[in-house]
């Protein structure tokens, strides 16, 4: 199946923002696309988080110094990384990670408020989720500024792991205030875990820091943050692979294209068929008539003077490192 070509139109990217929809694609199609992306990101991020992080994110008395900030970002980076790849490749928007983390937080709040709090009556603070929004934005900025998957995995991945604790400290620290309870020293979270019944989740099921004879105990937050960062660098590639091979690879079954974007799906496409900026009909910073109208071989003599980023050119068009 070939992609249908829209009618010719002559707008730049800035024009798009000013003038709104093109005659061929009204904004309703954009809204439809967003309406698909929002629940998709929310559902995938939320289900992944619930299945793998689960109790660490559900309950305040699981949010310890060791496992919670170690596992949450490592698991949490996978879907944002996949979303980052997909949104960048399909829409040219470096916002997939932010979108995934925002959708994750919104869907978590919907779950915690309506089920944990409004339905089962747990206090809101006891079941409040963690946020990953600062980390998602950091990941997108890392890609926006480097346009390199490798550098994004290193810089953005490390930031993703390191930022988790600072981003959540104000949300959670109140639960770590000490309480003397029946002559034992506990935190507020421990007291709530004792009092608010979770019949099938006795405290021995908690996987939390239990102390050990290793060094760096005083610096455990730093050690865990850096370790999580290193883990995020590795797990980022899991998300990248998910986006590239799970989200894109099946597309080749349905889409026959000579696109350089999806070209890797069809290794037989010769390199000289890859469009160059000038041949693609680029006007200043936006989509020129040739670009939209299928004029891949039309020379408009335009120069991409306003396009940003450290590199451009056919050989690096897909953001390859």
């Amino acid at each position: 199946m070939s992609i249908a070509q829209p009618p010719t139109r002559s707008v730049t990217d800035d024009d798009d923002r000013r003038t709104g929809p093109s005659p061929a694609f009204g904004r309703k199609w954009d809204l439809l696309l967003i309406a698909v992306l929002i629940p998709a990101f929310a559902a995938i991020a939320h289900i992944t988080h619930m299945l793998i992080i689960g109790d660490w994110d559900f309950w305040a008395d699981w949010k310890d110094r060791q496992w919670w900030p170690f596992l949450s970002p490592m698991v949490g980076i996978v879907i944002p990384a996949a979303a980052q790849y997909i949104v960048w490749r399909l829409l040219g928007i470096p916002g997939g990670a932010t979108a995934a983390t925002v959708m994750l937080v919104l869907s978590q709040w919907a779950s915690r408020f309506f089920t944990f709090h409004a339905w089962v009556y747990y206090p809101l603070a006891f079941v409040s989720p963690a946020t990953m929004i600062p980390m998602g934005i950091a990941l997108d900025l890392a890609f926006l500024l480097t346009r390199s998957w490798v550098l994004t995995s290193i810089v953005g991945g490390m930031a993703f792991g390191v930022l988790f604790q600072p981003a959540n400290v104000a949300i959670t620290a109140g639960m770590w205030v000490p309480v003397v309870y029946h002559n034992e020293i506990m935190t507020v979270a421990d007291v709530m875990g004792f009092e608010y019944l979770r019949t099938q989740a006795p405290s021995y099921l908690r996987i939390v820091e239990e102390g050990h004879l290793r060094a760096f105990i005083e610096q455990i937050n730093i050690v865990v943050g850096l370790t999580a960062g290193v883990g995020c660098i590795a797990f980022y590639w899991g998300g990248y692979a998910l986006g590239r091979f799970v989200a894109f690879a099946p597309a080749k079954v349905f889409i026959k294209t000579k696109s350089p974007i999806l070209g890797f799906l069809h290794p037989g496409v010769p390199e000289d068929r890859v469009a160059t900026p000038s041949a693609a009909g680029i006007t200043e910073g936006g989509i020129g008539p040739a670009a939209v109208a299928g004029g891949g071989t039309t020379d408009t003599h335009a120069t991409p003077t306003d396009t940003a980023g450290p590199r451009s050119g056919a050989q690096e068009q897909d953001g390859r490192p």
Partner: peptide
């Protein structure tokens, strides 16, 4: 992008 006439960078 899908048509291959532009790249995300642009």
């Amino acid at each position: 992008l899908i048509g291959g006439r532009r790249t995300p960078d642009e």
